[in-house]
Design a protein around this nucleic acid. Sequence first.
DNA 1: GATAATTGTTATCCACTATACCAAACACGG
DNA 2: CCGTGTTTGGTATAGTGGATAACAATTATC
Lengths: 170, 170
Amino acid sequence: MADSAKPVSRPHRESRKEAAVAVDETQAVQLGELSDLLGYVLKRAQLKVFEDFLRCVAPLQLTPAQFSVLLLLDGNPGRNQTEIANTLGILRPNFVSLLDSLESRDLCSRVRSANDRRSHILMLTDKGRSVLARAKKLVVTKHEARLNELLGPDGRETLLAMLTKIAEDF
Amino acid sequence: MADSAKPVSRPHRESRKEAAVAVDETQAVQLGELSDLLGYVLKRAQLKVFEDFLRCVAPLQLTPAQFSVLLLLDGNPGRNQTEIANTLGILRPNFVSLLDSLESRDLCSRVRSANDRRSHILMLTDKGRSVLARAKKLVVTKHEARLNELLGPDGRETLLAMLTKIAEDF
DNA sequence: GATAATTGTTATCCACTATACCAAACACGG
DNA sequence: CCGTGTTTGGTATAGTGGATAACAATTATC
């Protein structure tokens, strides 16, 4: 464990008779060892990044999940719902409404496969391709650019590599 | 990604229907630009880390959120619900049931403040301190140790620093 | 041809998040 | 004091994301 020299002196010694053990409420609550917990900082960072993504891509009304679907459809034509959903770690039942939403906005379409009439081949519509292109531009020029500014190009690359390692090998 | 040629190979046994745009289903779906999207990898990594945290701390039946509350109470005696909840980014209404759960397991207790009879001072019980100590040991020896093994001590420190920067300054 | 497996889908449940609102208690200016 | 406004914990509620069971249609398998 990282030996953090925190100003934690006496953990707990309260008197039986509550003698006005007033805590300085103007003082911020100390995160303590929490700031060394990778999972905690990881989640906090993830929330911030998603928040910024939503802001940057707000003009196109796309969530991170929707954007990732469009991106995947663009790069993998001819795949069905199960394949796309599995790739994104989305369960098939939950993928249905996501697709309904995209299809109702004419961003993608389900086409019954000729080979296997059970499955729906997913494809981007022209509008979907256009929206995806605009979204990509927003993500690159606003969202990722801001991250680059904060971490530096090499820092961002390092971070991406370590996170990928965790996501894949952990 | 300039691969417009179809890697058609190894025809399936059921190749009666000649599909014009047959996709090789044995081939994995390509993540493409998604693997360069920091937010995507960030969330994937976060899910993995939380998953492992749950596994490691399963004997004590503590979620990351519950653990963070116990840790915060230990380091910040005399604080009330609002202060703790705000620090963790939990909305007060949602913090109630979380505390109910911890209190019902006798891990912490709410004590009406003498100064301000509206607020509840939160404190760890002896059992809460004991469980927290055991949880910390599990987290350090199992969870964080595994991350250390994957990233190296310096890699973990670098990652933590970058994530903290995102969480704070982004 | 009977049986099993797969695909998309519905329904449902659970966890987490977010907002509106309330009573009790406090703060503060008259 | 008093009245007004704010804070605190709490309830109710709605929305979202994730998980499982089940089902009809279709395909695979033997």
